[in-house]
Amino acid sequence: MNTLTTSQKSWPLRQPAAFLALAGIIWFALYQALLPTSEALVSALPVDRTSHLGGAIQFFLYDTPKVLMLLTGVVFVMGMINSYFTPERTRALLAGRSEGVANVMAASLGIVTPFCSCSAVPLFIGFVQAGVPLGVTFSFLISAPMVNEVALTLLFGMFGWKVAMLYLGLGLTVAIVAGWTIGRMKMENYLEDWVRDIPKTSAEFEASEMTLADRVDGGFAAVHEIVGRVWPYILAGIAIGALIHGYVPEDFMASFMGKEAWWSVPLAVLMGVPMYTNAAGVIPIVQALLSKGAALGTVLAFMMSVIALSLPEMIILRKVLKIRLIATFVGVVATGILIVGFVFNAVL
């Protein structure tokens, strides 16, 4: 086994506290320079800054490094925090809890655990083995991809803390209520037979002692894994957002996704389901839609459906769930998202 001595480790791992302080200062200085730098770059190009093309280019040049910096910083910090929330620890925290309380815990854990829809099947199986109730498992599976650190960070960076907290509250409410509702329906018989027959195992876990250097190393690993996986979606989302920002007329978007069109919320949900992206890819599009007059409730409904009800996730879950349970899951979550969209279009 290869074991690095202290002298052989890289500087961040030998002096983690100093590294974190210096990295934070450099990150903040670079972040503050993004807007003037993007404006200077557009001014140096042979395009009119006030034209459609100039606006689209400035949007792309500013938002791309902004989103990537926000994502890298928060994923690094959450990678350090996530070392406390292994799959074993998560299952142990949820196993044996009563419904209601467990739904709240499961949805809350979804915010800080590094799991996405691609982890749905192994997580689902692990929860079943640990004896976690079906409804509680669904609260976690809804919350983990929809209300995660990536979504909240990008929303905060683009719209401020009020919208980020609003999305946090809405996402948690949908996850808690939908999971509890599915739990009350007693649909365990609609798990695939091989899943129901899996022998139950202990949900115990062994706590491991980790140093600050170990957690810094975990932060680097999280950045490599998560940012390395989602950056193409970020670029695609920002490119689409730049085109919407630069070229789509405000009147068109307001009529298509505005408050006055009652059908805009269900249409937004239907449009979001077949899309294959995540928070990193959809939030730049959300920003552009809102800047063009789309209603907040409609846009939130679109975003939630893209993240929580994506067709690829349904295909993955088909391995462990029968069609009726998948249909119930989609129906309950979609109803919650529709209510969110209609309510916020009515009150805002």
Results as ranks from 00 to 15, higher is better:
residue 81 I to Y: 07
residue 121 V to P: 06
residue 91 R to E: 11
residue 19 F to V: 04
residue 57 I to W: 03
residue 75 V to T: 13
residue 61 L to F: 07
residue 24 G to Q: 05
residue 123 L to W: 05
residue 90 T to E: 01
residue 24 G to E: 05
residue 128 V to I: 10
residue 89 R to W: 10
residue 122 P to A: 11
residue 87 P to D: 06
residue 114 P to Q: 08
residue 17 A to Y: 13
residue 30 L to R: 13
residue 119 S to C: 14
residue 80 M to I: 00
residue 80 M to A: 01
residue 104 V to L: 15
residue 21 A to C: 11
residue 37 T to R: 00
residue 79 G to A: 12
residue 78 M to S: 03
residue 83 S to Y: 09
residue 53 L to W: 01
residue 17 A to Q: 14
residue 79 G to I: 06
residue 78 M to V: 10
residue 27 W to G: 14
residue 22 L to R: 11
residue 8 Q to W: 12
residue 77 V to Y: 03
residue 112 V to T: 06
residue 43 S to P: 00
residue 65 P to S: 03
residue 12 P to Y: 02
residue 129 Q to G: 09
residue 39 E to V: 15
residue 126 G to S: 11
residue 120 A to R: 01
residue 37 T to N: 01
residue 71 L to S: 05
residue 27 W to F: 15
residue 50 T to Y: 08
residue 6 T to E: 14
residue 83 S to M: 14
residue 43 S to M: 10
residue 62 Y to P: 01
residue 79 G to P: 04
residue 71 L to K: 01
residue 123 L to P: 04
residue 56 A to P: 01
residue 25 I to D: 03
residue 81 I to K: 00
residue 100 G to I: 11
residue 38 S to D: 01
residue 11 W to Y: 13
residue 103 N to K: 02
residue 97 R to W: 09
residue 124 F to D: 00
residue 93 L to A: 14
residue 95 A to N: 11
residue 52 H to T: 10
residue 66 K to Q: 11
residue 13 L to K: 04
residue 37 T to K: 02
residue 18 A to G: 15
residue 82 N to K: 02
residue 60 F to M: 09
residue 38 S to Y: 05
residue 18 A to K: 13
residue 117 S to L: 05
residue 109 L to I: 09
residue 118 C to R: 07
residue 50 T to A: 14
residue 84 Y to A: 13
residue 47 V to R: 03
residue 40 A to Y: 07
residue 129 Q to M: 13
residue 91 R to F: 09
residue 25 I to T: 13
residue 74 V to L: 15
residue 72 T to G: 13
residue 96 G to L: 09
residue 14 R to P: 05
residue 85 F to Y: 12
residue 126 G to V: 07
residue 23 A to M: 10
residue 87 P to G: 08
residue 102 A to M: 07
residue 113 T to C: 09
residue 89 R to V: 12
residue 97 R to T: 14
residue 124 F to M: 06
residue 79 G to W: 02
residue 16 P to Q: 02
residue 103 N to P: 05
residue 59 F to M: 02
residue 10 S to D: 11
residue 39 E to N: 11
residue 107 A to I: 00
residue 81 I to F: 12
residue 43 S to R: 13
residue 23 A to I: 12
residue 114 P to Y: 08
residue 40 A to T: 08
residue 125 I to D: 07
residue 42 V to C: 10
residue 106 A to V: 01
residue 79 G to L: 04
residue 31 Y to H: 08
residue 105 M to P: 00
residue 11 W to G: 06
residue 49 R to K: 15
residue 96 G to N: 05
residue 127 F to A: 05
residue 126 G to C: 06
residue 112 V to I: 13
residue 93 L to N: 08
residue 13 L to G: 01
residue 29 A to R: 11
residue 78 M to K: 03
residue 21 A to E: 06
residue 26 I to C: 15
residue 93 L to H: 07
residue 115 F to T: 05
residue 76 F to G: 02
residue 31 Y to N: 04
residue 120 A to N: 05
residue 76 F to I: 03
residue 55 G to S: 06
residue 48 D to K: 09
residue 64 T to C: 05
residue 13 L to S: 01
residue 52 H to E: 12
residue 46 P to M: 07
residue 122 P to F: 12
residue 89 R to S: 06
residue 64 T to Q: 04
residue 92 A to M: 09
residue 50 T to P: 02
residue 37 T to M: 10
residue 89 R to N: 08
residue 79 G to N: 07
residue 10 S to G: 10
